[in-house]
């Protein structure tokens, strides 16, 4: 990677982070809302831990995986909206008139998402540990958890970037948010799949990739090193990221259709 390209990526990533930091709502909601939801769920669904076969006696530990996914959704929607704004205001045209390579823009944008993903993961993990959750996989598991959470953020972020680049509309990006949330609610978010009694719900949750992302994070918290869960979680996260980055790259090529 040349110095010029590296400098471009770094500067664009810095811009992405700076822009997020200067919009407090873009930091506060991705951090606070998932934690509030965790508190509500942990309080209301604690009795679920008494179900035969429930994998832990702490619902907080069970549900701590959810904020990592929700946080990634929030942050990536915000990043996608910011990119759409760049298109609408002509800022992307300004960049297109420089020798910047399109891949630098996408990498820089995703670099900002990585930075936000690391910060969010550290906060969620810190809050979990502070309320008594014990990470069964230990310090190395914490590191793997953060890597997986960041990979998920990149995948979702690239989907947000794809929507922004394809439509050029912040509203279109925002409209993805409920769709992602439907995927989240139709997953094993609130109950292990083997304990879901409604057949269609269990089938949907089994077919839903988000279930495997959550279960991989959850396994590191409440199980330890579950190779199958981690392989499925990383596999789906990687697949989502590859597909999303490919789609975003194609959309960027069309958007930056300078001669």
């Amino acid at each position: 990677m040349s110095n010029v390209f590296a400098g471009q990526v770094l500067t664009l990533a810095q811009r992405s982070v700076v822009r997020t930091v200067r919009q407090p709502a873009n930091i506060v909601f991705p951090l606070v809302f998932p934690l509030l939801l965790l508190a509500v769920n942990a309080g209301g669904l604690d009795a679920a831990t008494r179900l035969p076969g429930f994998p832990t006696n702490s619902f907080v530990a069970f549900a701590l995986a959810i904020p990592f996914i929700q946080g990634a959704l929030f942050a990536t929607m915000n990043a996608g909206t910011d990119l759409a704004r760049d298109i609408q205001t002509g800022f992307l045209n300004r960049l297109a008139l420089t020798p910047m390579r399109g891949i630098a823009l996408l990498t820089g944008q995703l670099g900002g998402i990585v930075a936000m993903g690391v910060i969010q993961s550290l906060v969620y993990l810190g809050v979990g540990l502070a309320v008594g959750v014990r990470l069964e996989s230990g310090p190395a598991g914490a590191l793997v958890l953060i890597v997986l959470a960041v990979l998920i953020s990149i995948g979702f972020g690239a989907l947000g970037a794809f929507a922004a680049l394809r439509t050029g509309s912040g509203e279109a990006v925002q409209s993805l948010f409920p769709v992602f949330f439907v995927f989240l609610f139709l997953s094993s978010m609130a109950m292990p799949r083997n304990l879901i009694e409604i057949d269609w719900f269990r089938a949907v949750a089994t077919a839903n990739p988000v279930s495997y992302l959550i279960e991989a994070i959850r396994s590191l918290i409440i199980v330890g090193w579950d190779e199958e869960a981690l392989a499925l979680g990383f596999g789906f996260a990687f697949a989502i990221t590859v597909v999303a980055v490919a789609l975003a790259s194609m959309a960027l090529r069309t958007r930056l259709a300078r001669s």
Partner: peptide, 23 residues
């Protein structure tokens, strides 16, 4: 048409971004 600027960045940050993009 219409100054395509990022309202959240400073003037100096804009110039830093632009000069970096020009290598």
């Amino acid at each position: 048409q219409e100054a395509a600027l990022d309202p959240l960045l400073t003037g100096r940050e804009h110039l830093r971004l632009q000069t970096t993009m020009h290598g």
